Simulated assay, not measured.
Amino acid sequence: MDGAKPLLFIDFEFSMPETGYKGFYAEIIEAGLVFCKNGKIEKEFSSFVTPVKGKRLTERCKSFLGITQEQVDQGISFAELTGLLAQLDRPKKVVTWGNMDMRVLRMNCEKNGCPFPFEKDELIDLSMEYKKFFGDRNQTGLWKAVEEYGKKGTGQHHRALDDAMTTMKIYKLVEKDKKYLEKPNPTTIGDRVDFSQLLSKFAT
């Protein structure tokens, strides 16, 4: 894993509207973070996040994510979440699968009057890196991508920390493939010829 800068792998889960609901915007209701320094996991964080506007989860949302209203009610506030994100080391790479996590985070920050905790040049959409690397026409889902490597996702899909861990797993695999495909430095004549044996031959 890249040891030059700390790596922060993030996954959020969002609230969902019932069909046809007007005035809805997605809010972060679960956060999973994996923070790595020097190639090693330094911190893991998982928490539900209490939504500000749509405090009552829809049945669709609870069913899809397999969570309860009580779990979300006992979560941290959105302000606490952004405060935690802002405290992490900088500069760093913030890695997500897809751009939706950062789009919803930015929108939630705007709606709640909170500063966005990251710089634009810190953000990496790993799904696009994966797409470019393998030349795919279509964007691949997180768990499909890890299965294409012959691996399994961590834990349960659509649980924030498990998906963040799975994102980290794919990041490692892609970085390993990139290094494997890097062209080695061309050998010099000194690498190809043992001059000590050549000189001893002429000396006899």
Rank of each mutant, 00 (worst) to 15 (best):
D2L: 08
G3C: 13
G3Q: 14
G3R: 14
G3H: 13
A4S: 15
A4W: 11
P6A: 03
L7Y: 08
L8V: 10
I10V: 14
E13G: 03
E13Y: 04
S15C: 07
M16E: 11
M16V: 04
M16L: 14
P17Q: 10
P17S: 10
P17K: 08
T19K: 15
G20K: 06
Y21W: 12
Y21S: 10
K22C: 04
G23C: 12
E27S: 09
I28E: 06
I29Y: 05
I29G: 06
E30T: 05
G32Y: 09
L33C: 04
V34K: 02
K37F: 00
E42Q: 06
K43M: 04
V49K: 01
T50P: 02
T50E: 11
T50D: 04
V52P: 00
G54C: 07
K55D: 11
K55G: 12
R56E: 12
L57A: 09
T58K: 07
K62H: 01
F64T: 15
L65N: 09
I67T: 07
T68Y: 01
E70Q: 15
E70K: 15
Q71L: 01
D73T: 06
Q74F: 03
Q74C: 08
Q74P: 01
G75Y: 10
I76Y: 04
I76M: 11
S77E: 07
F78H: 07
F78M: 08
E80V: 12
L81M: 13
T82L: 11
T82E: 09
G83T: 14
L85P: 05
L85A: 09
L88F: 03
K92P: 05
K93H: 02
K93D: 01
V94M: 05
V95K: 09
W97A: 08
W97G: 09
N99V: 13
N99E: 13
M100F: 13
D101I: 08
V104W: 05
V104K: 08
M107E: 13
N108A: 00
G113K: 12
P115G: 01
P115C: 01
P117Q: 10
D121N: 14
E122G: 11
E122S: 10
S127W: 02
M128D: 15
G135D: 11
R137S: 06
Q139V: 12
Q139T: 10
L142K: 11
A145Q: 07
A145L: 08
E147V: 13
G150F: 03
G150E: 04
K151P: 00
T154G: 00
H157D: 07
H157K: 15
H157L: 12
R159P: 00
R159Q: 08
D162F: 02
D163C: 08
A164I: 10
T167L: 00
M168P: 01
K169M: 05
K169R: 03
I170R: 05
I170S: 05
L173F: 12
V174I: 12
V174D: 00
E175A: 11
K178P: 03
K178S: 04
K179L: 11
Y180I: 03
K183Y: 03
N185A: 15
T188L: 00
I189N: 09
G190Q: 14
G190H: 15
D191R: 12
F195Y: 15
F195K: 14
F195G: 03
S196G: 01
Q197I: 15
Q197P: 03
S200C: 00
F202S: 12
A203F: 04
A203E: 13
T204Q: 08
T204F: 00
